[in-house]
Design a protein around this nucleic acid. Structure first.
Lengths: 343, 343
DNA sequence: TTGTATGCGTTATCAG
DNA sequence: CTGATAACGCATACAA
């Protein structure tokens, strides 16, 4: 009962026509008699014919498959983006293949990383918040080889098309909000520098403080977007003689870690210390207290990224553009007025 | 400067040999003079040759690519498994392609779902906790077509090889622990039924209660493994005249939701109500209070699943086996003695 | 409107 | 030990 793969030849034989006619009937290109077309389609359906993707690729034609390269699979944030992109792609009638470009510490990524996908996919989406730029150079060198769109990339040095949130304005709004609440000692928990997103957020934070005449009170702690790092960083901040009254984390996960550290120290959020995140991951609404944060419009970002990629596949000659979507300050329960005593 | 793809022909020309010699030198199969081999390898490296995967597939040879089909990309748990599998596969010198088999509500999955991967991959790993069995039937019907291994599947009706944790014993240990702490009203928050994992856990829960003569006190609330569902379910439980003193959730995310609901009601975990999860996702150690849970050995599971898949690729004729790895009760801070008043 | 022949990059077969 | 040739499944000129 094991069905051997069905090819155009099988369909052609059974339908009593040539392979060419089958090909035309299925692709819709070229002239085929309506009656013949129906016959072929019926036989194809009956036999359960599905085109061999590899043969298509080899022939150089479109596969209707898009690729998504990520620098990590262990971050729930990336998982969320992957899920959204996957849905958008499916809705466009295409398929999506995901590839983890992360290289193991003891096993450097081979030069053919990505070759894999490049062969099979019509175009590639790159979500690489954890990758050094060497990977990117690989794609920049041959832009006409395969269409590419960067997601959430924040540095200006690339010639590739980009879709991202407005990290700078988002961070400005967040910092301004904390100032309005009366906070004067606001710490910033930074993330990894790879995509430049953390720097953009830090810049927004610093600029707003500077404009309020508080440049000297800026305190930036290095981090890596991980929850446990946020925990450790917050512990160190709390151990200071004059701990901050508010913590602005470069992402939600570090904010979660910071909240845990604060609670573990016997302090309350937001009564004793306010915490503000960035991203608005799903968990932000479920933790206690619910996290105030800057929302990145991931649904829009995914939508635009896929749209832009498809556009580039169909019009490879157009200029690369950068799409920046607005971030939005979402106020929940983790931010509150600064303690009068602490001002 | 755009590099056109380098083929064996290019290498052959530059090395002054035939394509066949190049193929042999690179694959290591067949006789090639040592000196010729070195020459070819040098030229291949110089030209940056990488084999065309599609051509390999078309020819029917191994691709050294494994596929991972998941039923959802939005669950952090699956994301975790994906990451681990990805690492194991990389370490084996192979590559991994991930495909989201979830079908959109308004766009049913086309019949060629999976055809895609089946063509390109030597074998497939299936992680389908959210899929009805129709998808599975697809693979069972033609097991010799492409080697397949199921991950975390708990029903006995399949002839395919399976790797999973011991859900039943894990749930037994968890329930027994709550009984030892003095709890007598223990509620169980169930998940989706698709893989049978929730049922296995529920069975362990019911059996231990029955053996303690408490079968009548079993209370099972339907859920779907989602955090918000855990929240809602816990709220309903708390609204009862005699709320449970302990909640055993079929997974950690529902446990998180339950903890949030308890805290939002002004009660404390574990002083007023104990909460116990299942899975031991990373967040379980970071939430407050840290979650007691049943650890699924995902690292081992991933390792074994990949190992088993590779074994089946290389020896397709062997009998399908089921590997069940032990779960482990991990006690943290979310479980404590039952309130004397509530017993 | 339909059929024939060719090539994409690889590897297996078989001859040299 | 090495090389020419065919074949995998599909789509495209081109011919009929």
């Amino acid at each position: 009962m094991s069905e051997v793969p069905v090819t155009v030849i099988d369909v052609a034989k059974k339908a009593g026509v040539s392979v060419m006619t089958v090909s035309r009937a299925l692709s819709g290109r070229g002239y085929v008699a309506e009656k013949t077309r129906e016959k072929v389609l019926a036989v194809a359906a009956e036999l359960g014919y599905a085109p061999n993707l590899s043969a298509k690729v080899l022939k150089g034609s479109r596969t209707n498959v898009l690729g998504l390269m990520v620098s990590s699979l262990e971050s729930p944030l990336i998982a969320d983006i992957i899920g959204k992109v996957s849905n958008v792609v499916k809705r466009s009638g295409r398929d999506l293949l995901i590839y983890n470009a992360a290289s193991l510490p003891d096993m450097p990524s081979r030069p053919d990383v990505g070759r894999l996908l490049r062969g099979v996919c019509d175009g590639l989406l790159l979500v690489l918040p954890g990758s050094p730029d060497s990977q990117l150079a690989f794609f920049e060198q041959s832009p006409e080889q395969v269409p590419v769109v960067l997601v959430g990339y924040c540095r200006s040095e690339t010639a590739l098309p980009v879709v991202r949130a407005d990290n700078y304005q988002g961070a400005r709004a967040a910092t301004a909000h904390l100032l309005e609440l009366g906070h004067r000692r606001i710490a910033f928990l930074a993330g990894t520098p790879f995509t430049g997103q953390s720097q953009a957020r830090e810049q927004g934070y610093r600029d707003v403080l500077a404009e309020a005449g508080l440049a000297a009170s800026a305190q930036v702690v290095d981090g890596d977007f991980q929850q446990c790092t946020g925990y450790e960083a917050a512990r160190r901040l709390l151990a200071q003689p004059q701990p901050p009254t508010a913590i602005f984390a470069a992402n939600d996960f570090m904010a979660f870690g910071a909240m845990d550290a604060i609670k573990a120290s016997g302090l309350r959020v937001p009564e004793d210390i306010s915490v503000l995140g960035f991203d608005d991951v799903q968990q932000a609404s479920y933790v206690f207290p619910r996290l105030s944060t800057v929302r990145q419009p991931f649904a829009d970002i995914s939508e635009q990224a896929v749209r832009l990629l498809i556009q580039r596949i169909e019009h490879p000659d157009q200029e690369a553009q950068t799409i920046e979507l607005p971030s939005e300050l979402v106020l929940r329960d983790s931010t509150g007025p600064a303690l009068a005593a602490a001002r």
